[in-house]
């Protein structure tokens, strides 16, 4: 049977696992108890940290694939495709991180946005990822494009650890790293920790499923471009032959 989509047995299983995990995250997250400090708004803990984590994972995958392309020994077109696919999904998750963070910030901080280190660096990360995707759209020789975008990916990766530790290095409105607060009076309650961990798993599975499909779509796009180019060359040759006669 001719395959008409980028689905396979593996992606189907991955997709189902992602859906189940996401459904469980939403169900658990929305039924979390109200807290003294944040009332019902702490329920956003099930999705926001998981989204942020996945944005970092996507950036790291993009950077590692870019390094694999830059190293002559491992250079292959597949790394460039993987880097581009992961960056697109990374931009989506970074945008969601900013949106859900702002939505959480409004009732708890009183503002949707403030130019503190964590928020500013997150916005910078999104700008760098969008810049990376724009670079990939500039018409150029595939090798030149891959080199340019690989350098841009490495630049974007620098922001990830700085952003992660920003809440400790600078005075920010954003709270400290949830998992780093180990004192008993500050540590997260078990149900919140469980919901957050499930959110991490669900978002990672969603990312993995999207990534597999995005890489396959990128391969199909590339194959179509090559076919279109070959057809155009063939047509020009045929025209030249007709004119020569």
């Amino acid at each position: 049977m001719k395959r008409t989509t980028t689905s396979s047995g593996l992606t189907m299983s991955l997709g189902i696992a992602a859906l189940v995990a996401l459904g469980a995250t939403v169900a658990l997250g929305l039924t979390l108890p109200k807290t003294v400090e944040q009332a019902e708004y702490s329920r956003l803990i099930a999705i926001h940290p998981g989204i942020a984590w996945t944005a970092y994972v996507a950036c790291t995958v993009t950077a590692l694939a870019s390094i694999a392309w830059l190293l002559p020994r491992t250079r292959a077109a597949k790394w460039d495709l993987l880097a581009g696919a992961s960056a697109e999904i990374g931009a989506l998750f970074t945008a969601l991180m900013l949106i859900t963070g702002s939505i959480w910030g409004r009732p708890t901080w009183g503002v949707y946005w403030v130019w503190d280190a964590r928020l500013t660096l997150s916005a910078l990360l999104l700008a760098l990822l969008l810049g990376y995707l724009a670079i990939r759209q500039v018409p150029a020789d595939p090798d030149v494009r891959a080199r340019r975008s690989a350098m841009a990916a490495l630049l974007a990766l620098v922001v990830v650890p700085v952003n992660h530790f920003a809440v400790e290095w600078w005075r920010t409105l954003h709270q400290g790293r949830s998992l780093a607060q180990l004192t008993p009076e500050d540590s997260l309650d078990g149900s919140f920790l469980g919901a957050m961990a499930l959110g991490f798993l669900a978002m990672t599975l969603v990312y993995a499923w999207l990534l597999v499909h995005r890489v396959r779509v990128a391969r199909l796009e590339e194959a179509r471009e090559e076919t279109a180019l070959a057809t155009a060359i063939e047509e020009r040759r045929a025209e030249a032959t007709t004119l020569a006669r």
Binding site: I47, H48, L92, W209
Partner: peptide
């Protein structure tokens, strides 16, 4: 609770929209 629903709603709608776009594109190209 409006903010919580907005956070969950926007996240799920965005992820679903991107997944549908991806599957449609793959069907068109495949």
């Amino acid at each position: 609770m409006g903010y919580v629903w907005a956070g969950y709603g926007i996240t799920l709608a965005t992820l679903a929209a991107y997944a549908v776009w991806l599957l449609r594109r793959s069907r068109r190209l495949g």
